[in-house]
Amino acid sequence: MRFLNYGSVNIDLVFSVDHVVQPGETLSSTGFFKSAGGKGANQSAALAKAGADVTHAGKIGADGQFLVDLLSGYGVDTSLIRLYEGASGQALIQLDKQKQNAIVLFGGGNLAITKGEIDESLALFGPGDMLVLQNEIVHVSYLIERAKARGMSVCLNTAPFDEKILGYPLHLVDLLVVNEIEGAALAGSAQGSTFSEVLEALVHAYPGSEIVLTAGKHGAYYGYRSLRLHEPIYELPVADTTAAGDTFIGYFLTSRSLGHGQQEALRYACKASGIAVSRVGAMGSIPFAGEVFG
């Protein structure tokens, strides 16, 4: 299986802070670094590091060339990342002393993608291939519809969640990946619903989709038709949670493409994300296949 990940490519600006800054507050940072990120790019890096055949499509400014070089170094086909005259996407990340993060996004090139570029990219893929999407670029509905028309399967990660997602043609999505907050919002679940209840609601709302619900320290859940699965976390000391979900998705998809069953794919994905959160950074924290499958 070939993967086409049409997704965000961002420059991450990470500030280490005592706590997330409050309105009207000026706060000194105890550390700073610049790195490659964007949920789309992180997921492409995870797919490539896991051993998948992945092409990333997106758009950057001249300030983002190092992002392309880094993805290429991991084995991602970057031939469909287009250059334009504006700025690349940016993420300002506050990382507090509990290693939790707060993120402010600037869309940049991620919001400058055109339908014509999408058509050119999708023309290179077809039946047997999978389109991987997140919610950090424009024209997500168009991408889903055009990919399905070409016989591709579609994986949608609903992060970051907003009301636009409710208008997407979710009935066409083959694999829907949500975290506990996104899942509850999408399912319309009552406050205090258990993970199993949220999963059940999603399975009934989207009967044609496989559902993966990531639940932080509570592991990951899977539902499709009558099958329900759970996998606990792979526990290591937490250094930075930034790319945990992206790592999970890359390894889950790669595991499935290699012929592993759903439970085994959940196990490898939880292991990979556990390793990732034990390291600082986004793309660079994602483990290679030998660390996970070995």
Rank of each mutant, 00 (worst) to 15 (best):
E145L: 09
G128S: 04
L176T: 02
N157S: 11
L156E: 07
E210Q: 15
L27I: 05
A87N: 15
E264N: 05
G188R: 15
L80P: 06
D240R: 15
L105F: 11
G183V: 06
A201G: 15
E163I: 02
L70W: 07
G116K: 15
A147F: 06
K34P: 00
A190Y: 07
Q43R: 07
G107K: 11
L92S: 09
P23W: 03
K59F: 00
S257H: 13
Y234L: 13
V292H: 09
A62N: 12
L170F: 00
P23C: 02
K148N: 06
S226N: 14
K115T: 15
L67M: 04
I118Y: 05
V178L: 15
Q98K: 10
K99V: 09
E197L: 08
L70Q: 14
R146T: 08
P23D: 05
L266N: 02
Y224V: 06
Q94P: 00
E25D: 09
P232F: 01
T55M: 10
E264F: 00
L80R: 14
I165D: 07
M1D: 08
D174L: 13
I286R: 11
L266S: 01
L266C: 00
I275K: 14
E117I: 00
L156A: 01
N157M: 10
L124M: 10
K115L: 10
G37A: 02
L67R: 03
T241C: 12
L92H: 09
G208E: 14
S8A: 00
R267Q: 09
G219E: 02
P169C: 01
Q191R: 12
A282C: 03
V14A: 04
G31W: 13
E163H: 10
Q22F: 06
D12V: 01
F195D: 13
Q262P: 11
D240G: 03
Y234C: 14
E120I: 12
Y222D: 09
S121C: 08
A159F: 04
A57H: 05
N101L: 09
N5T: 05
G116R: 14
D162R: 14
F33G: 03
G250T: 03
D119H: 11
T26D: 12
I93K: 10
I93C: 02
G151H: 14
D96T: 00
V138W: 07
T254K: 14
S29P: 00
L266Q: 04
V154K: 09
D12R: 09
D246C: 05
Y74G: 06
V280Y: 12
V138K: 14
K99G: 07
L27T: 11
T254C: 15
L213A: 12
L27Q: 11
P237I: 08
I286Q: 13
L186W: 11
G7L: 00
C155H: 10
S121K: 07
K164Y: 10
A62I: 09
C155N: 11
I81C: 02
Y142M: 11
K39H: 02
Q22G: 02
S193G: 02
M130C: 15
E200P: 05
I113W: 12
Y6K: 03
N101P: 09
A46F: 02
V203A: 06
S153G: 10
G294Q: 14
G219Y: 04
K59C: 05
H171C: 08
F252P: 08
A244I: 04
G40D: 01
V177F: 07
D77A: 08
